[in-house]
C-alpha cells in the first residue's frame, strides 16, 4: 500500500493543481492576517471559507483523480498487489496531498505572523484538524461515487450534488424543520441533525471553541452545554472519525467486487 501511496502522492505533488491549491491558501492566510490584523478574527473568517471550500475541493479533486488514474489503476490490478492496497493507497495519496496543501498553506502565514505567541493557537489547530477531517471525508465520499459510476459526467454530477446538499441544502432543510416544528422541544433533534452532517458538525465545533455560541441562536445553550464539555467534544470527534472510516470501509468493500 505504501508504494501505491508513494506514487500517487508524488504524482499529485508534481501536478500543477496541488500548487494552485497551496498558493491559494498561502495567499488567503496572508491577506486575512494583513486585513484583520488579529489572529482570532482571521481564524473566524478562515473558518467560513474552509467549511465550504475544503469539502468542495476534496470532492472535485477526488472524483477527478479517480477518473484520471483509471489507466494507473488498471495497470496495478494486473500486478501482484492487493486490491484494497491500490484504492487505499490512491485515496491516501489524494487526501494526504490536499491536507498537506491546506496545513502548509495556512500554517506558514500564521506561524510567520506569530501564532505561537498568540492564545489563538488552539482555535487555529482545531481549524486545521477539522479542515483535515473534511478533506478526508469528502475525498472518501467522492472516491465512492466515482467507483460506483462508470460514467464520468454522472459521477461528477452526483459528487457536486452531494457537496451542494451537505453544504447548502441540508442547512435549509434543517432551519425549515426548526421553524415548522418550533412548538416541540428540538434540542435533541438539532444536536442529532448536526451530527449527521460533517460540515455542520465542524462548524458548530469551531464556533463553540471560539466561544461565539451566540451566533448559533436558538439552540445555542444546548449546544454549548453539549459541545463545551469534554464528552461533547469527544463525541463530535468520534462522529468525524466515523464519517471518515465508513466511506473508506465501503470503498474497500466495493472495490473488491468491481470488474475492470
Amino acid at each position: 500500500m505504501f508504494k501505491i501511496l508513494k506514487y500517487s502522492f508524488y504524482d499529485l505533488i508534481r501536478s500543477r493543481w496541488s500548487y494552485v491549491y497551496f498558493l491559494f491558501y498561502l495567499a488567503l492566510g496572508f491577506v486575512l492576517l494583513f486585513l484583520n490584523n488579529d489572529v482570532s478574527k482571521a481564524v473566524i473568517t478562515l473558518m467560513n471559507i474552509i467549511i465550504v471550500l475544503v469539502p468542495l475541493i476534496g470532492t472535485i479533486f477526488g472524483v477527478m483523480y479517480f477518473y484520471n488514474s483509471k489507466e494507473f489503476t488498471e495497470l496495478l490490478l494486473a500486478q501482484p498487489v492487493k486490491r484494497s492496497s491500490i484504492f487505499l493507497g490512491q485515496y491516501l495519496g489524494v487526501a494526504g496531498s490536499l491536507t498537506l496543501s491546506l496545513v502548509l498553506g495556512l500554517g506558514i502565514p500564521f506561524v510567520l505572523y506569530g501564532l505561537f505567541r498568540s492564545d489563538a493557537i488552539f482555535d487555529f489547530s482545531l481549524l486545521l484538524v477539522t479542515g483535515a477531517f473534511l478533506t478526508m471525508i469528502f475525498t472518501a465520499l467522492s472516491f465512492n461515487i466515482a467507483l460506483s459510476n462508470e460514467n464520468k459526467i454522472k459521477g461528477f454530477g452526483y459528487a457536486v450534488l452531494l457537496w451542494l446538499f451537505l453544504a447548502v441544502i441540508y442547512d435549509g432543510l434543517f432551519l425549515m424543520s426548526l421553524i415548522v416544528f418550533e412548538e416541540y422541544p428540538l434540542d435533541t433533534f438539532s444536536l442529532v441533525a448536526t451530527m449527521f452532517n460533517p460540515i455542520d458538525l465542524s462548524r458548530t465545533l469551531i464556533l463553540l471553541k471560539l466561544d461565539i455560541s451566540a451566533l448559533l441562536g436558538y439552540t445555542g445553550a444546548v449546544f454549548k452545554q453539549f459541545f463545551g464539555t469534554n464528552q461533547g467534544f469527544l463525541v463530535s470527534m468520534l462522529m468525524l472519525v466515523l464519517w471518515t472510516v465508513l466511506p473508506i470501509w465501503r470503498l474497500i468493500h466495493k472495490s473488491k467486487q468491481k470488474d475492470f
Partner: peptide, 9 residues
C-alpha cells in the same frame, strides 16, 4: 493488456 493504457504523465 489489450489496450495499452498507461498513466500519461
Amino acid at each position: 493488456p489489450q489496450i495499452a493504457n498507461f498513466p500519461g504523465n
